[in-house]
Amino acid sequence: MTGAPSLIGLFLAALGAATILPFQSEVVFAALQAAGRAPVWLLVVVASVGNTIGSVITYLMGRGIERFRHRRWFPFTERQIDRAQTWYRRWGLWSLLLTWAPFGDAIALAAGLLRTPPGIFVLLVAIAKTGRYIVLALITAGLIG
Score class of each variant (00 low, 15 high):
34 A>V: 12
70 H>W: 11
106 A>W: 13
53 I>H: 00
77 T>K: 03
129 K>S: 00
94 W>V: 04
125 V>M: 02
8 I>W: 15
136 L>R: 01
125 V>S: 03
109 L>T: 11
143 L>C: 04
131 G>H: 08
133 Y>L: 04
1 M>I: 08
2 T>S: 15
111 A>T: 08
124 L>D: 05
47 A>P: 04
53 I>C: 01
144 I>T: 01
62 G>E: 05
29 F>Y: 00
12 L>T: 04
13 A>K: 09
23 F>V: 05
48 S>V: 12
111 A>Y: 11
91 W>H: 07
13 A>R: 01
17 A>S: 12
39 P>A: 14
68 F>I: 11
70 H>K: 09
55 S>V: 14
118 P>D: 00
60 L>V: 14
6 S>D: 15
45 V>A: 05
55 S>F: 13
144 I>K: 00
55 S>W: 14
58 T>M: 03
35 A>T: 08
124 L>F: 14
117 P>V: 07
58 T>Y: 02
6 S>V: 14
2 T>E: 15
6 S>R: 15
2 T>P: 13
68 F>K: 13
17 A>L: 06
80 Q>C: 09
10 L>I: 14
143 L>A: 09
1 M>N: 10
141 A>P: 01
47 A>Q: 10
144 I>L: 09
91 W>D: 05
117 P>R: 14
86 T>Q: 09
19 T>P: 06
50 G>Y: 05
109 L>C: 05
80 Q>A: 13
144 I>C: 07
55 S>D: 15
60 L>C: 11
144 I>Q: 01
27 V>M: 11
22 P>D: 04
136 L>K: 00
139 I>S: 05
91 W>V: 09
68 F>P: 08
19 T>G: 02
45 V>P: 00
115 R>W: 12
99 T>P: 05
108 A>F: 10
93 L>A: 10
62 G>S: 08
36 G>P: 07
103 F>V: 13
63 R>G: 15
38 A>M: 05
37 R>D: 11
8 I>G: 10
63 R>A: 15
34 A>R: 12
140 T>M: 14
107 I>V: 14
122 V>H: 02
